[in-house]
Design a protein around this nucleic acid. Structure first.
Lengths: 340, 340
DNA sequence: CTGTTAGCGCTTTCAT
DNA sequence: ATGAAAGCGCTAACAG
């Protein structure tokens, strides 16, 4: 039988209350007493029963998710996954609130974060907008002991505890190798469609992509980036225009708004064979993969990101460890054969 | 505040014990009483606190993992992941035992399973050997209400509750498309290295591979399968021999024993450019991917498989639901750019 | 058939 | 600074 607080109390010759104070690092215990208890804990190999502790405390985990109010499939999916987590709240003792902020608006994000420090959630998950003022509040909140994880888009150089998202440089590199290998000996130009070069994940994907292209596929030239603002209409216009260029042999779509990309491809692609790699598995990209309009999709599993963020925030709140491998967000590569 | 058993008891005008009997579907409750309690449960929106119940019961989950005693990296990794889970046992209330059986030996597996029914574990995870007599015991155990999940290799047509592993047909198809696309316009022959055509996962991978090759890459011809018995030495000899054939442009290694494959490739590949797709990320395949000996690795995450099997067995034992998306074992595709 | 009571392992008053 | 006792939500004897 596993030792319990009773066993520790008996072994140390103190009461339950004292054991509890030591366990929870609460004040009001003489140094020698504390020592005795800690020794007993060590010698008996005591492992605390977190479930029992939570029951006694009636503990819940108030968490806040801060998302950009962007109207694209990926953010909708992310939102849906959080709402799924809300449904599981009773069992997981969480109490999750979603806060939407205007996209790409550091000031708005900062003011939401400041407001949050008042209501004392036990954890914050946020899709970060990469700006110095955001970094500053995040660092302040972390110093005030709020567990914070970034979601999908990181805030490098900040003190956030964890990043629940894919390695976007690796994603860009992978896209480049897939395109390069799929194109084989063909020479030509590659169009790149991004949302905005102002967001870090898009910049990083481009960086990785350009690096591998330059290193390994010198016969393929990257055209100036098209910024579609993650908007299907804009993306459609940009891509339709670009396809006027007969030298294009491939496209890398590293942001959202793929609906517009796909429409443009279908309008123009009758006569040509383009190789296309896009990000994020949605109803549209899935259909395009199946009908060969897209050759490969790189994806991040929003459900995994949300569940991971929750596990990590809870663990941080309790000072517990996590299973690192379980929290690694993979870059999923989908061909038409391995779709979920 | 969430309603508790006390609230239900009060609302239904019965005692705690009766509520508990209804909750746990135990006998000894009049039909009308049961109705009253069930109504109260429904009306108050009662949700049971599993953690509290487990505390009261002192519940633990005795689980058994049955693995083939195969000496290859993948099985070693799987074993290691289970041992990791054993270390987490105190927190997860599990009590995990690993049983090794001779590989590819249905009779041995059957006798272990029969022995198990005596010791009443609350769940069994097994790497299945696909044979009728195994199916028969598994079906019998399932009927006797043992939760059973197959791990890595499935037992199709059986009553097992769940399969924690990848879709091997999809894996074979994916391998074919990667090889085909990477080879582009090249024509030639493809060597296939398998462990044994007697195990289902290998057969299925080959099946998927051959299907896509035939449908979409008619210029590539599949050579007769080399059966390396998942043994590096045998694999080395077979591949070294095969490479004498100058027509070979690609290799698909769908089993284990890649150490031998890699050695053969390094010995012979100076003068040629082979495209190689292999299964399972190990220290050897990882190094080979990085030095361009292998072009892509298909992988199944053994840690995920083990954690998933445990979650599912526990849920089944309690009659609880799982998060389906979380339990889907993906086919990971690794290029040198997205290695973990 | 139904109810009473004493815990499970831990936390939390409230005394001392 | 320390301890006694009650209780978190649920289950398990044991009575009736």
């Amino acid at each position: 039988m596993r030792p319990t607080v009773h066993d520790i109390a008996a072994a140390a010759g103190v009461s339950l209350a004292t054991v509890d104070r030591v366990l929870n690092q609460r004040p009001g215990v003489r140094h020698v007493t504390r020592e005795k208890v800690e020794t007993a804990i060590r010698e008996l190999g005591y492992i605390r029963d977190v479930a029992a502790a939570n029951l006694a405390k009636g503990r819940t985990y108030p968490l806040v998710f801060i998302l950009p109010a962007s109207d694209n499939s990926f953010m909708h999916g992310l939102n849906a996954e959080i709402r799924q987590a809300v449904l599981r709240s009773p069992a997981e003792r969480t109490d999750i609130r979603i806060v939407e902020v205007p996209a790409f608006d550091p000031a708005a994000l900062v003011s939401v974060l400041e407001g949050l420090s008042r209501e004392k959630p036990c954890g914050i998950a946020m899709v970060a907008t990469d700006a110095p003022e955001v970094r500053a509040v995040v660092d302040r909140l972390v110093r005030e002991r709020f567990p914070i994880v970034t979601l999908v888009s990181d805030l490098t150089g900040s003190l956030r505890h964890h990043y629940a998202g894919v390695d976007n440089i690796a994603a860009g590199r992978t896209a480049a190798r897939l395109l390069g290998r799929f194109l084989g000996p063909r020479k030509g130009e590659i169009a790149v469609l991004a949302g905005s070069m102002l967001v870090r994940d898009h910049r990083e994907r481009l960086e990785g992509f350009a690096a591998v292209m330059a290193e390994e596929f010198p016969d393929l030239a990257i055209l100036p980036v098209l910024e579609g603002r993650d908007d299907p209409e804009v993306a459609h216009r940009l891509v339709a225009d670009a396809l006027g260029n007969a030298g294009i042999v491939g496209i890398y779509s590293l942001g959202a708004g793929n609906r517009g990309l796909i429409r443009a491809l279908k309008e123009k692609a009758v006569d040509r064979t383009l190789t296309v790699v896009a990000h994020e598995l949605t109803a549209h990209t899935r259909a395009a993969l199946i009908d060969n309009t897209i050759d490969a999709i790189l994806n991040q599993d929003a459900g995994h990101e949300v569940r991971s963020a929750i596990r990590i925030l809870k663990a941080k709140a309790d000072g517990l460890a996590v299973i690192a491998a379980q929290e690694r967000i993979r870059l999923d590569i989908f061909l038409k054969d391995n779709l979920p």
